[in-house]
Design a protein around this nucleic acid. Structure first.
Lengths: 172, 172
DNA sequence: CCGAGTTAGTTGAACTCTCAGTTGTTGAGA
DNA sequence: TCTCAACAACTGAGAGTTCAACTAACTCGG
């Protein structure tokens, strides 16, 4: 309890700045996408993943893992996108438990229409602000974090998966 | 439309890595806080802001702006925290439209109990993964982004405020 | 003092996400 | 073959956020 490794002043400032920066940035991305295309960013990403998949089709759980989403989230999201006619659901032949999500032509068209403004907002919010050195550093940092966070099972991903609370006990 | 400044390969990879890293990281922070303290991170931050304010009290709109939240969000959040007895609402004397949010002793105790594990998860997810140079670079990048994003009225903040869609037209 | 315009804050509906539970399927072992 | 744990996906309830009203109070010109 009292042996907490508190943040020193510099860490504190870094943390808060990071928090503020990412909030401002992602709030902006989210808002732009919502206003221009009526899509949350998570949904946009689903469309992107599907558009890049062979046959514009992915199994629901593959879609979940490539999108860093829970299966439940994908279910709800695909249901909504299906109502819009942007995605179609089809049964999986080999495994009758499975379901395939396929990007329709309308979905592809919607994605193509949404992309330019989205990319523009990413560029304006991120790349226009940073120097080439900062961009390089950001990539380095992000890669490091991804490696660190995706290997360590520090935080169990909920939804169906076993809740092995690894690592938590060591600190508490 | 076709003059979109698309991302080149390096930018694309940076962007996706950044996206993945922040998602993994913040999902973890959120999950840890939710599981250990039953609080979303946004609510935790409200408690922190109040705890740092003179008299542990802030006006609702000051709370909104220091937390980068909409007034509506603060209203809902404070309502919930008030039910828990962690925050108390009081009328503002000078301006009868206003309301003050005050952190109660119970709220302060709750915050003190939540803090160690939260700090630990921030440290484990962020500072333990990065070298001192990377931390310095992250702070530099974050400060730059904050300066860039909070000055530019690129994305109008909704909720009551005037929707001056500045800057968007120039690109569209 | 009055009325228009602005500001502070709240509220309810719609939407997304999470969590827990359910259905249907698969596959390994008795 | 039958059984049962594991798996894929869906579903509904609960919680948080956003957006668009809405109320109440302040400001300022007339």
């Amino acid at each position: 309890m009292s042996d907490t490794r508190w943040l020193d002043d510099h860490e504190q400032k870094t943390w808060r700045s990071f928090l503020t920066a990412t909030r401002l940035f992602f709030d902006g991305i989210e808002r732009q996408l919502q206003q221009d295309s009526g899509l949350p960013h998570a949904y946009y990403e689903i469309l992107v993943r599907l558009s890049e998949a062979p046959g514009r089709t992915l199994r629901m759980s593959d879609l979940a893992s490539t999108s860093l989403s829970s299966r439940s989230r994908i279910s709800h999201a695909v249901a909504r996108l299906e109502e819009n006619g942007w995605v179609r659901r089809r049964p999986c032949e080999h495994d009758k438990r499975g379901a395939l999500a396929e990007l329709t032509d309308a979905g592809m068209a919607g994605l193509r229409e949404a992309a330019p403004r989205h990319v523009e907002s990413v560029r304006r919010g991120l790349f226009d602000a940073l120097s080439p050195e900062q961009v390089a550093a950001l990539r380095d940092i992000s890669d490091t974090l991804v490696g660190h966070l995706s290997n360590e099972p520090v935080w169990p991903v909920a939804d169906d998966q076993a809740r092995t609370r690894t690592g938590r006990e060591a600190a508490g």
